[in-house]
């Protein structure tokens, strides 16, 4: 584990209300540099809301969020991968990956285009640079979306069930690749999922959420060394434990 101790993301006493419906109730946790933290919860428990608030896509109503030492989400500090790839259908793979630069600066520089190319190499799409999204498979589209999130070199990647729509083989392949990229880039991951197996495979630490109004039920460390195999006794035991906690 690469955790060096300094805190990248701090969530403090976060609560959220939709109308009269309390969705998040006093959530506090933090993510350290280089750490993979999974947020595991039943569907509809507000875990996506939690991630959207952290990503700055929804306002903080009660409580506080600090990213990289500052209170606002600095664009350079976070990357987001959504459940759907959210690619612009009229742009090629490369065009989609340079989009964050164009949005931030108006235009992508030559150096930034090189960064985009490199990100495409990292996710294994160097042969599909000029393809349009409709020409790619679901797994490949999500790889493009991952490359797009990587180009700004974020300190923390926020993942909102990024592999949910994919078949099992593609999902496991991408889990392994994301771990490889994570080790290379030495960034932190905050990964929202409803799948206990995914949580055990990815996480250093799993935050288990309760049903609405969502509170943190428990936090489980996963002290299994990497690379992880899904069939070891420790792995299966941890998965069983998470399943039990979700009930």
């Amino acid at each position: 584990m690469e955790a060096s101790g300094n805190i990248i993301l701090e969530v403090k006493n976060l609560s959220h209300i939709f109308g009269t419906l309390k969705v998040l109730d006093d959530i506090s946790f933090d993510v350290k540099s280089g750490e993979v933290v999974c947020v595991l919860g039943p569907s509809g428990c507000g875990k996506t809301t939690l991630l959207r608030i952290i990503a700055g896509l929804m306002p903080v109503r009660y409580g506080a969020i600090r990213i990289g030492g500052g209170t606002t989400s600095n664009l350079q500090d976070i990357g987001v991968v959504f459940q759907e790839p959210r690619l612009l259908p009229w742009r090629t793979t490369t065009g989609n990956v340079v989009l964050p630069f164009e949005l931030a600066d108006g235009k992508a520089s030559g150096f930034q285009s090189e960064i985009a190319e490199e990100a495409l190499n990292i996710v294994g799409l160097s042969d599909f640079k000029e393809s349009y999204p409709y020409q790619l498979s679901g797994g490949m589209r999500q790889r493009v979306s991952l490359a797009r999130a990587l180009v700004t070199n974020p300190r923390i990647l926020l993942m909102d069930e990024p592999l949910t729509g994919l078949d099992v083989t593609t999902r496991e392949e991408l889990q392994e690749e994301i771990i490889r990229i994570w080790r290379e880039k030495k960034m932190s991951l905050l990964w929202v999922t409803h799948d206990p197996e995914e949580a055990v495979f990815m996480a250093d630490r799993v935050i288990v959420l309760s049903n609405r109004p969502t509170t943190i039920k428990t936090v489980l460390d996963i002290p299994i060394s990497r690379p992880r195999s899904r069939v070891t006794k420790d792995f299966v035991a941890a998965e069983q434990e998470l399943r039990r906690l979700l009930l």
């Binding site: 664009l75 612009l88 931030a104």
Partner: peptide, 27 residues
């Protein structure tokens, strides 16, 4: 709106979102 939300992760400028995402969608 998924696309405009994605774009808002990378910029606070409504003009950029209009120019890079909304207008091309309307072409």
């Amino acid at each position: 709106s998924n696309l405009t939300e994605m774009a808002s992760v990378y910029t606070d400028s409504r003009w950029r979102v209009l120019g890079k995402v909304i207008m091309p969608m309307l072409y």
